[in-house]
Design a protein around this nucleic acid. Structure first.
Length: 483
RNA sequence: GCCCCCAUCGUCUAACGGUUAGGACACCAGAUUUUCAUUCUGGCAAUCGGGGUUCGAUUCCCCGUGGGGGUACCA
């Protein structure tokens, strides 16, 4: 039996972190086993589905580096891969008709009001609600009369009275059992003719020859219903693996009130897809050794569903940030340069790009380890691109002593005599100031850092000074001394 | 209410029934760095509670507690 897995987002929003993680685990499993990964768009909810969301989901997957073998934009032998298109083809309806014919399903004419009343009654008597099967008991004449009258109706799956306990072995959770009598005849085809989730999923998974269903824990309770549909259709039941949930800091299902839940938001914030995917893989799965930072290629070589754990995991932004920083530090200066150019702020961009490639690289190298999110490079680089008013107000925030002015004067003298002005030269000039004034490093470096850069901390000051250039430094020193 | 799932440091997690219960993030301290950061070293910190089974339970079983999910003509 060949391994075929799928992940099936519904385009009712952008790519959610939980969905992305499910997609990733399907991807890892497919790559590890040499199986086929299918992307299926579950857009049966016409009211909430939007094509823009589908595009956004595709973008998110691309950013994470999750590709697939068959999908809407990658035709395969089991398409189409949008449920809306399969619906037009009549895929669901023909199966529903077959189930009616075989006595596994029936038409239900109950109105929403009637169903609400049933539910309210069950609640009032504090009994679990299951549909009354009222319409299953209709005579052929009653049924035909309503059909002839054009009464809108749904098609319900009939839970067999003999179904008893439904059991399956979850790859992650082990043996699971459910009492079929608590299930209730569920709607397969809605009154507008579209299939409901529990039905569409099974019809599609059969059609697409899915061997392993890997999805979130929130689908566990749907599984027995789906198994019953497989049985009614006399089809092989796939293997199931239910992934633990991704939780917010309060341990409830991750949702918008916890912050960004869409992966593309993280892209916009400056996280790297490679870091995100690495982090997500570690949420619920762990490698057999203790190495955490590793590429998806490496992870897919190691991945085993059996090593996925059962408990929900809180999404820890701090660790993601740390991991992102690790990935940024792995970049060569050239690679980092390519990453940062698109995110340069207007205040930095033109000034930075005006420098020679060599200077750009020198600046990047200098701040390489100073930021965790890509756009934070703007903060790190700011020291080189302060405008006059910014510089002045920062300088005004400091207080200086007479000794500081002495140091400034001594340094100005040195700078004025310098013919070249690279890193090494500046370092030498600073040493000379130390010997001339007789002051220690602290007394020399600290005031000069403030006067020359406007900051009291930052990267190596001799490099900052050399990159700022002799002209700028002389100007600042003169203005400081004449103030 | 009913059904189901889950339970190791604050967080993510490791541990054939036998380990001083390991690693990572965070936090704290020290070292390096002219400063901040990086880096390095060290430290703090956990088996939810109660019963069993066993020579021996984090590990197996039961009960309790806690948390989560589901209970739709959403997916």
């Amino acid at each position: 039996m060949s391994i075929r897995v799928r992940f099936a987002p519904s385009p009712t929003g952008n790519l959610h972190l939980g969905t992305a993680r499910a997609a990733l685990f399907n991807w890892l499993f497919a790559r590890r086993t040499g199986g086929t990964l299918i992307l299926r768009i579950e857009d049966t909810d016409m009211k909430r589905s939007e094509t823009a969301f589908e595009a956004s989901i595709l973008q998110g997957l691309e950013w994470l580096g999750i590709d697939y073998d068959e999908g809407p934009d990658k035709p395969g032998s089991t398409g189409p891969y949008r449920q809306s298109e399969r619906m037009v083809d009549g895929a669901y309806n023909s199966v529903a008709q077959a189930l009616i014919a075989s006595g596994h399903a029936y038409r239900c004419f109950c109105t929403p009001e009637e169903l609400d009343a049933e539910r309210a009654h069950a609640d009032a008597s504090s009994r679990p609600y299951v549909y009354s099967q009222k319409c299953a008991k209709l005579t052929a004449d009653e049924r035909n009369a309503r059909l002839a009258a054009g009464t809108t109706h749904t098609i319900r799956f009939m839970i067999p009275a003999t179904a008893g306990i439904i059991a399956f072995d979850d790859i992650i959770r082990g043996h699971l059992e459910f009492d079929s009598q608590l299930l209730g005849d569920f709607v397969m085809i809605k009154s507008d003719g579209s299939p409901s989730y529990n039905f569409a999923v099974v019809v599609d998974d059969i059609h697409m020859q899915i061997s392993h269903v890997i999805r979130g824990e929130d689908h566990i309770s749907n599984t027995p219903r789906q198994i019953l549909v497989y049985q009614a259709l006399d089809k092989a039941i796939p293997l199931f693996a239910h992934l633990p949930m991704i939780l917010g800091p309060d341990r409830s299902k991750l949702s918008k009130r916890h912050g960004a839940t869409n992966v593309i938001d993280y892209k916009a914030e400056g996280y790297l897809g490679t870091a995100m995917v690495n982090y997500l893989a570690l949420l619920g799965w762990s490698p057999p050794d203790e190495k955490e930072i590793r590429s998806v290629a490496e992870i897919s070589d190691l991945f085993e569903l059996e090593r996925v754990n059962k408990s929900g995991a809180i999404f820890d932004l701090k660790k993601l940030r740390w991991m992102n920083a690790q990935y940024i530090r792995q970049f060569s200066a050239d690679a980092l340069l390519a990453q940062i150019i698109p995110v340069l702020s207007p205040a930095i961009s033109s000034g930075f790009l005006a420098h020679s490639p060599a200077t750009q690289l020198a600046m990047i190298q200098l701040v390489h380890d100073n930021f965790e999110l890509v756009p934070e490079v703007n903060i790190a680089l700011k020291v080189f691109f302060l405008n006059d008013t910014e510089y002045k107000s920062m300088l005004d925030a400091f207080t200086f002593s007479a000794e500081d002015r002495l140091v400034a004067q001594a340094f100005l003298n040195q700078v004025s005599t310098a013919t070249t002005f690279d890193d090494a030269v500046v370092a030498q000039l600073l040493e000379t100031v130390k010997t001339e004034t007789g002051f220690g490093t602290g007394k020399v470096f600290k005031p000069l850092r403030k006067i020359c850069s406007g900051y009291e901390s930052g990267p190596h000051i001799s490099t900052v000074i050399s990159l700022l250039g002799a002209e700028c430094i002389q100007d600042r020193l003169k203005r400081f001394l004449s103030a």
